[in-house]
Amino acid sequence: MADKQDFLRMVRTSLGVSERRDIARDDATSFFLSKDEVSQAADDIRADAAERRTELIDEFIHRATEAGWNIHRVANFEDAAEEVTAVVREHGATAVMRSDHDILNSVPLESALKAEGVDLEIAVREPSDDADEDLERRLSLREKSFDSEVGITGVDFAVAETGTVAMEPRAGSSRLVSLTPEVHIGVMTPEAIIPSLDELFALTRDHHLSGEHKGMINLITGPSRTADIEANLIIGVHGPREVHLVIVG
């Protein structure tokens, strides 16, 4: 087994430096910004995005459409539920799952889908203090995610530059609901939109430095795709073939 210290010594020898040293500041990387600077920048980003909202919505919709998202703009949560139901109906789906993202608790999905005869499954387990039992419950949730035809999630950030949505999985927000079903529907408000990847990673970095980070950040831009067979573009490999974004407000 390679010892860490031996490995680092090998690297130092290769670089021609003898021992641990302070490194010189280099502004090419954002590494040298202090925690306070990052935090201040995050506040500025939020304020700036709020100010430029209309412009950012247009850019986001343009890029997201280009990337293959089906965009639905609706005025309120009731209409959002209607849009989601219409997609479910169109697919004749019966296995539908949603995450427990905050925004979805405002959307009257259960009743709208119930009217279609669809029981909406919520991707949440009852946590157990018993490790084996907890694992059991998680595995059962995983099975249900794989069996779902439509997955409905919230969105934590939306990036105008690329038409990307980003989600940070956490209690109530599963990783798989946006991945395993053939159809993914994200529900968001315009407040989620930020200008670019620069702001996205400034904000998630701020989370990190404040100790509020999650196990993962998922950036999703359009449907799953491949060009591995004779460079033909094929939509829908391991992830969803069809993706929708419902923008409320």
Binding site: R63, A67, A123, V124, R125, P127, R138, L141, R142, S145, E161, T162, G163, T164, P169, R170, A171, G172, S173, S174, R175, L176, L197, T204, H208, H213, K214, G215, M216, I217, N218, L219, I220, T221, G222, P223, S224, R225, A227, G239
Partner: peptide, 23 residues
């Protein structure tokens, strides 16, 4: 690939955190 961004970028911050539904 010539894309502005790929369909997925997955940033993994270690194992599943307590409370997470999967991972």
């Amino acid at each position: 690939t010539g894309q502005r961004i790929s369909s997925y970028v997955t940033v993994v911050n270690g194992p599943r955190k307590a409370g997470e539904e999967d991972g």
